[in-house]
Design a protein around this nucleic acid. Structure first.
Lengths: 334, 334
DNA sequence: CTGAAAGCGCTTACAG
DNA sequence: CTGAAAGCGCTTACAG
């Protein structure tokens, strides 16, 4: 059997409580006692049993991360950084893939997944604020992304509108006038796609260029759907001189389709995305995009969640954090 | 407070043990009793406390997955599928990133990570078999990848040698004679890189073409390093008419560098990779590659690990599973 | 087929 | 500053 606190207590000649005090960095321990306990721990190779600690304390030292699909590059990158940020504070991250299904998204809010974690980083895609509020329980919950923007919930996000406007502004400055948008419904205004579309419209308005809904093609945010959306525009005979993929994989899929059809990028059509995936830097041509402050997002969301868990964050209302961004100009839209 | 088994027992008018029996699908329960318990569970909204169950039973229903970096596309894809396969059996997967550091790889073998999981899926990159054997403990451990091929350990992998030989054969059939290899040391023979290099050499030998170590460039398996390795070959004046990136990101990095330098792919130099990332399908040109049987790998490794956990797998020796592969011929090496 | 009791390894009031 | 005791919510022999 594994070494227990009892073994340590016996070896050090103290009580269980004293070992617990040492383990939990209780201040008022006589240095000599502390030393004896630490020696016993080292000698016996004692490792605290997290399960027992969890059962008693109600804390698991795990954070939950709910996202649709870990194999999507943006989420993989985000998960990786969140795990590293959490590790710095002594927490692990348990990932749950929802596949963008409502039942899975809601399921992560209670049941065993919730039990196993002290707080949740949640990237809802289909479920609405009411459904979440009804099920969220008392454990802290921080939203990532923009599907839910609600004063009841903490939220960490990028400056989507500003970033999309900056990118669109860059395309306009390059002389592009008919900029297709891939990944949103023409009338969309909420959620990540809606906010980015809104930024696009803002930049258009600033340049006194009318908004043409025919240039906006909805698509799920994948490479194949990005390619299909551009194919649809081309087949319908819609004219455009640039494509703004609302994220990088959409832009990359679109760029592929353009090239397959002999449309030259950027000469005939410029292409730009959003996310700054490593993949885009090595695409041909390399992809112009927005680099969201991923480290800032990871750091801030973990920080906020841990503050809530520890009761350090005083605000009763949701705290909304907006991370910065950077425009990365590359070959696909110089 | 949450509803406990005691509350359910009281509501159903039975003992704790009976509730436990119903929860654990014990066979011999009177149907009426079972029904009463299930009704009480439904009515109270009871959810079993996993932590308490773990402390008592020693099982956590979690599997550990140790890999170097979750943001690497192959690992992200693998993790995603492993999580889905595990979920089908009622298990979750807890991921640990080692950053290819020995301390982290060894650390995952004991301590809290091991405690929290019933078995480990391990992708070691730097640690050797002896170090693992010395620290592995009694919980099951299944190796993924080929860094450790040792009769003491279970292993699930692709047919690396055969796949690399098939790919090389395809390049040779296309008339390529000087095929550069990116991602291995010229003398390497063990590990994933070594096995793939070995397959390359086998195909070369079958075509009676001498092996030229000058064509083999070591590189970490990333895009930037793939680009740098090809740059190195070009700068040294090494002549080649094809590049075999030992995985897709290497090939994609190499392809980017070639194109930046005005080398036409595939006319001047054909490029091929290994992994069949979605990214490669949408690269320009699209990437010829090997599709490892990812679902087979995920399914078999989870199956094997769960068999070991349940004591169902009788073999004392390590079981070695080799998944199939498929050659995907695309534009970069038609 | 079901019950009463012990115990997994911790933390946490409560004393002193 | 430290000890003895209770208890977190389950599962598991042991009876009956």
């Amino acid at each position: 059997m594994a070494v227990t606190m009892n073994d340590v207590a016996r070896a050090a000649g103290v009580s269980l409580k004293t070992v617990s005090n040492v383990l939990n960095d209780y201040e008022f321990i006589r240095p000599a006692t502390k030393q004896r306990v630490q020696d016993a721990i080292a000698e016996l190779g004692y490792e605290a049993n997290l399960t027992a600690r969890s059962l008693r304390s109600g804390k698991t030292s795990m954070l939950g991360l709910v996202l649709s699909d870990l194999s999507a590059p943006y989420y993989a990158e985000l998960a990786s950084r969140l795990m590293k940020a959490a590790a710095r504070h002594g927490y692990r991250v348990l990932v749950e893939q929802s596949d963008a299904e409502a039942a899975a998204e809601l399921g992560a809010l209670h049941g065993t997944f919730r039990q196993l974690t002290d707080g949740l980083l949640f990237t809802p895609l289909v479920v609405d604020a009411e459904a979440i509020a009804a099920r969220a329980g008392r454990k802290p919950l921080v939203m990532l992304g923009e599907h839910i923007v609600d004063p009841r919930f903490d939220l960490v996000t990028v400056k989507n509108r500003e970033a999309a406007a900056a990118l669109t502004g860059h395309l306009l400055a390059g002389g592009r006038r008919r900029i297709a948008v891939i990944g949103a419904d023409p009338g969309e205004s909420a959620g990540t796609g809606g906010l980015r579309l809104d930024g696009y419209r803002t930049a258009l308005a600033a340049a006194v260029i009318p908004y043409d809904p025919a240039l906006v093609a909805p698509a799920q945010w994948r490479r194949d759907t990005g390619a299909a959306a551009v194919a649809g525009l081309l087949d319908k005979g819609v004219e455009f001189d640039a494509v703004f993929g609302l994220n990088d994989v959409l832009a990359l899929g679109a760029m592929h389709e353009l090239q397959v059809r002999g449309v030259k990028v950027p000469q005939d059509v410029a292409v730009a995305g959003f996310d700054d995936l490593d993949e885009g830097r090595f695409a041909s041509p390399s992809l112009t995009t927005i680099a969201p402050g991923m480290d800032e997002i990871a750091e801030r969301s973990i920080g906020l969640l841990l503050d809530r868990i520890a009761g350090r964050e005083p605000s009763v209302q949701g705290v909304h954090v907006e991370a910065g961004f950077e425009l990365k100009i590359r070959e696909s839209a110089p």
